[in-house]
């Protein structure tokens, strides 16, 4: 996790009205990371709740990364990548898709709300979609409250 970003924006008092969720978003270098970029360039407003982790391909996202994010205190984890068929590495996101199926089942069965883990395909030009996605997820998580897997003492 990008620790300095997390530390800088960590709210002092958790679970109060001013509570901002912490959302870890895995973005692929070629599409969704570009999407986040164009969201900024297009000046689409979005809450400062996400910490973006850039990976070369969404296929690189191991379920282990997602577990780790949850265990370290993420309130939600987003898996994003290129649209199916548009993968820079031909079929990386096909692999993400099937991996995600397992992961989704296990996370749900574990008793974590399904809003806390989401998959979305966002291309580099879809800045507005990215911003809307982040806004929606943040609103959903604000309703749910902090993650049940958040360790003690982590905001």
């Amino acid at each position: 996790m990008s620790s300095e970003v997390a530390a800088a924006s960590a709210p002092a008092a958790a679970k109060t009205d001013g509570w901002e969720p912490k959302i870890v978003a895995f973005c692929c270098n070629w599409c969704s990371y570009g999407g986040a970029d164009s969201a900024g360039m297009g000046r689409f407003q979005q809450p400062a709740s996400t910490r973006i982790i850039r990976v070369m391909c969404s296929g690189r996202i191991d379920p282990l990364h997602v577990f780790n994010a949850f265990l370290e205190g993420a309130d939600a984890v987003l898996v994003t990548g290129c649209h199916i068929g548009d993968c820079h590495y031909v079929n990386g996101n096909d692999k993400t898709k099937i991996k995600y199926k397992y992961l989704e089942n296990v996370v749900h069965e574990l008793g974590i709300e399904k809003e806390r883990l989401q998959l979305n395909w966002i291309s580099a030009s879809e800045g507005e979609k990215f911003a809307n996605f982040i806004r929606d997820v943040t609103a959903q998580i604000k309703k749910l409250g902090p993650s049940p897997l958040k360790p003690e003492g982590v905001a």
């Binding site: 780790n68 265990l71 370290e72 574990l110 049940p148 897997l149 958040k150 360790p151």
Partner: peptide
């Protein structure tokens, strides 16, 4: 952690 990585 609230749950062990091993079991997850």
């Amino acid at each position: 952690y609230k749950m062990s990585m091993y079991h997850l």
